[in-house]
Amino acid sequence: MHKLMSNRITIFWLVAPGFMLFLFMVCLPIVMSAYYGTTNWTGIGAYDFVGLDNYTNILFHDGVFWRSLLNALLLLAATLLIQHPIALLFAIFVTHAGKLEKWFRAIFFIPAVISIVVTSKMWVSVFHPNFGMFNKLLEGMGLSAWKQDWLGDPKLAIWCIIVVVMWQGFGYALLLYYAGLQGIPKDLYEAAELDGAGRVKLYTRVVIPLLSPMVRVAVVIAVTACLKQMETVFLMTNGGPANTTQFIGNYLYKTAFSSSLYGYGNAISVVFVIICLILTLAMNKAFKKDVGEF
């Protein structure tokens, strides 16, 4: 085996199929998108070369694009600062739930296994201004003055979308932290308790530091999910009202296929890829320090 792997020609032919597939499936589409992004093609028929006009328009004049990116960053901030800490707390609770552990684990993961179409349409009904459960609940509590057109108000709609997306992804975040907690040896808990560590110090000084590798995975997944968010937005508001709930994926789809601005849509995709690469490099630098194993 060593002799086989030391043969460069053999290594080349072993690597070549995967490398060619990567070039064909990843690199070539990006190059083609970059090219079409320099045209005014509608997706059908002839087109003209417009140079970097599409890219400069995106970067300096397209407020909807930057609003879409801001919404993704708002969702990411809410996910990391609200959803994940709560998921960690619930994961700790589930690990100490005893005989009810399996039941709680299943209940908390239910939103993640239900179709996004179903959950999105359910939440549209919940937020409906006339017969929605949320407004009916406020009315029943004597808070009729608080009733709103939740998905129709430009100031409230984005926060409704963020709440729904975090609710849908809560089960995945909890499962990641639950799996990380299961991987920590019980001996460490016992040793910390013998040393006099209370419950708070046990988790802040022992458990959470040992969860660092899982936190890294959870953050990467969260960044990816927030940036590529589309389905929930498309089904609930389609970016409205007035593009206040627009996300890059949905904006790209509407631009390229609904508005038939295929060249401009490709330019958006290329800029989006560059932003993702920058964030990837930033995350790699932030997580550069290796975490010790236990």
Rank of each mutant, 00 (worst) to 15 (best):
M122L: 15
W150R: 03
R67D: 10
K136T: 14
V126P: 01
W150Y: 06
A106G: 07
L137T: 14
I161N: 00
F109K: 01
G132E: 00
W167F: 15
T56V: 13
V163Q: 10
W146S: 13
T119M: 05
A157F: 00
S115M: 06
G45Q: 06
A46H: 11
G169Q: 06
K147I: 05
C160K: 02
I161E: 02
G45S: 07
L75G: 00
Q148L: 03
P85W: 06
G169I: 00
F108H: 03
V113I: 14
G51E: 12
A112T: 07
S115N: 11
M141F: 08
K136P: 06
F60S: 15
V113K: 04
V124K: 11
T42L: 11
N71P: 06
H96C: 11
W66I: 10
T79W: 02
L137I: 12
D48N: 14
W123F: 15
A77C: 12
I114V: 15
L80D: 09
F127M: 03
W159Y: 15
F60I: 12
G63F: 11
Q148R: 12
V165P: 00
K155H: 12
I161K: 00
T95L: 13
A97R: 03
L175P: 02
P129M: 06
F109N: 02
E101Q: 15
F170G: 00
I158Y: 01
H96T: 15
A78Y: 04
V164R: 00
G180W: 01
D149F: 03
V124G: 09
Q148C: 04
K136I: 13
N135D: 03
L176N: 06
I110L: 15
N57C: 10
K136C: 11
L175R: 07
Q83C: 12
V118E: 10
H61I: 09
N135S: 08
A91C: 10
A72W: 08
L69C: 13
Y55S: 12
W146I: 08
P111T: 03
T79R: 07
F49P: 07
G132F: 02
R67N: 15
A179W: 09
I161H: 01
